[in-house]
């Protein structure tokens, strides 16, 4: 039901339009850059070095596309759930629903499942579009693609679930502010950690880890890029997507636990709330 609800709403429509637009621009952009580099490679006589550059360029562009897809999915997740409980509590819509013979926890779980499904589809569309676009134009496929995409999905789910928890306690606006604020913090923390590891600055790395613990979204993205990054760029460390300080498996497990805790919190807060 929430699924249908979401589809009727403008957020999803806006998300889809944005997504399709993005894919179109991305494909054209990729084509242009790729053609350019291919020509250069051909001019260089197809040497191994130039082929390598071509490959690395594809990898880089793929990650850039995925990065944008990730951001769109994360934003979609946050917007979907920011308004759902808060908005329905505020408008009183929730009253007739909770006065039905349902568990309140089922109301929250139902929404979560619907959003998780929706986000999955959305990500599949965007990321799938990016991957397909790169593949059909250059034949390039990143390594560990599935693992990377799952991590990105986890990131979007985290954002959505955390927003749902906030939404059960606060207004939609406050929820939006909180989740995007934390997301931004984690993003900056991630960079501090990266730069810290270049200069071997332990404090900076620890600050980064601390922000990841606070909100592990960015850490998931970095792990995802680490998985999908070709060995060469990792060694050369030459693009912004090269991950220097790699979040380990413990961080991933932590993110999963974080997600479950946020969901439990959402349910609990909603159960104890006067409507």
């Amino acid at each position: 039901m929430t699924f249908r609800e979401a589809i009727r709403r403008k957020i999803v429509l806006a998300g889809l339009v944005l997504g399709v637009l993005f894919l179109a621009v991305y494909s054209i952009g990729f084509r242009m850059i790729y053609t350019e580099i291919s020509l250069e490679a051909a001019a260089a006589g197809g040497s191994i070095a130039s082929l390598l550059v071509l490959r690395e360029m594809s990898n880089f562009l793929l990650l850039a596309g995925l990065y944008a897809a990730t951001f769109l999915s994360v934003a979609m997740g946050a917007l979907l759930s920011a308004d759902t409980l808060a908005g329905e509590i505020n408008s009183g819509t929730i009253q007739t629903i909770v006065a039905k013979p349902l568990r309140r926890s089922d109301v929250v779980l139902g929404k979560w499942l619907a959003f998780a499904g929706l986000l999955g589809l959305y990500l599949l569309l965007l990321a799938g579009g990016v991957v397909a676009s790169v593949y059909f134009q250059s034949g390039f496929v990143a390594q560990n693609l599935l693992r990377g995409l799952l991590l990105i999905y986890l990131e979007a789910l985290l954002m959505m679930t955390f927003a749902l928890a906030c939404s059960s306690a606060m207004t939609a606006l406050a929820t939006g502010g909180t989740v995007f604020g934390l997301y931004g913090l984690a993003f900056i923390g991630g960079w501090i950690e990266q730069i810290g590891s270049i200069f071997n600055n332990q404090t900076a790395v620890q600050v980064g880890i601390a922000t990841s613990l606070l909100f592990p979204t960015e850490a998931m993205w970095r792990r995802a890029t680490y998985e999908m990054q070709s060995a060469v760029s990792s060694v050369l460390q030459m693009t912004p997507f090269v991950t220097l300080s790699v979040p380990n498996m413990v961080m991933i497990a932590y993110a999963v636990l974080y997600l479950l805790a946020a969901l439990a919190l959402a349910i609990r807060t909603f159960q104890n709330r006067d409507l």
Binding site: R8, S91, G92, T93, Q95, T96, A99, K100, P101, L102
Partner: peptide, 21 residues
């Protein structure tokens, strides 16, 4: 008791329903 709510009807005071339906 949830079972009882299946036999109860409720028209709230300040309501807005799901407008897109």
């Amino acid at each position: 008791d949830r079972a009882v709510l299946a036999r109860v009807g409720f028209l709230p005071e300040h309501f807005r329903f799901q407008e897109w339906l």
